[in-house]
Measured scan of single mutants.
Amino acid sequence: YTAFGDLEVFLHGLGLEHMTDLLKERDITLRHLLTMREDEFTKNGITSKDQQKILAALKELQ
């Protein structure tokens, strides 16, 4: 049995499950992801397509 964390649930909701391992390897938490700047997305290997999905979701949360 494995409990999913906030990061996994957030990514799954956006259809971005493939990013879970990448972000965990880089010790990026959901809190960090929510406050990242555009250059940090790129530096951490997050594609512009995935970045757009994340940023759109963040706008909806605000």
Score class of each variant (00 low, 15 high):
residue 40 E to S: 02
residue 24 K to H: 06
residue 28 I to H: 01
residue 41 F to A: 06
residue 54 I to F: 04
residue 41 F to I: 06
residue 30 L to S: 04
residue 7 L to D: 02
residue 24 K to P: 02
residue 16 L to K: 00
residue 31 R to H: 03
residue 7 L to N: 00
residue 7 L to F: 01
residue 4 F to S: 14
residue 52 Q to M: 08
residue 47 T to S: 14
residue 61 L to Q: 15
residue 6 D to A: 10
residue 57 A to K: 14
residue 14 L to M: 07
residue 24 K to F: 06
residue 41 F to L: 12
residue 29 T to M: 02
residue 11 L to W: 00
residue 36 M to E: 01
residue 56 A to F: 09
residue 12 H to M: 10
residue 27 D to Q: 12
residue 61 L to S: 15
residue 8 E to Y: 07
residue 9 V to Y: 07
residue 56 A to H: 10
residue 6 D to C: 02
residue 3 A to M: 09
residue 6 D to H: 03
residue 11 L to Q: 00
residue 47 T to E: 14
residue 10 F to T: 06
residue 54 I to E: 06
residue 40 E to N: 02
residue 60 E to K: 15
residue 51 Q to K: 13
residue 8 E to N: 10
residue 43 K to D: 09
residue 30 L to F: 12
residue 20 T to M: 12
residue 32 H to M: 12
residue 19 M to R: 04
residue 38 E to I: 04
residue 15 G to Q: 06
residue 59 K to F: 07
residue 46 I to Y: 04
residue 40 E to H: 03
residue 9 V to M: 13
residue 34 L to Q: 14
residue 45 G to S: 03
residue 50 D to V: 02
residue 48 S to Y: 10
residue 45 G to A: 03
residue 48 S to D: 11
residue 30 L to M: 10
residue 30 L to H: 03
residue 24 K to I: 09
residue 47 T to H: 10
residue 3 A to V: 09
residue 20 T to N: 07
residue 8 E to C: 04
residue 11 L to Y: 00
residue 58 L to E: 13
residue 28 I to A: 01
residue 45 G to E: 05
residue 60 E to P: 14
residue 52 Q to D: 08
residue 5 G to Y: 08
residue 18 H to L: 04
residue 58 L to K: 15
residue 15 G to N: 07
residue 10 F to V: 06
residue 30 L to Q: 02
residue 7 L to A: 03
residue 4 F to E: 15
residue 20 T to E: 06
residue 30 L to I: 09
residue 16 L to W: 01
residue 27 D to I: 00
residue 19 M to T: 05
residue 57 A to F: 04
residue 46 I to D: 01
residue 13 G to A: 08
residue 3 A to L: 08
residue 9 V to L: 12
residue 48 S to K: 15
residue 43 K to Y: 03
residue 54 I to K: 05
residue 32 H to N: 11
residue 48 S to G: 14
residue 41 F to N: 02
residue 21 D to N: 09
residue 47 T to G: 12
residue 6 D to Y: 00
residue 14 L to E: 06
residue 16 L to N: 01
residue 60 E to W: 15
residue 20 T to P: 05
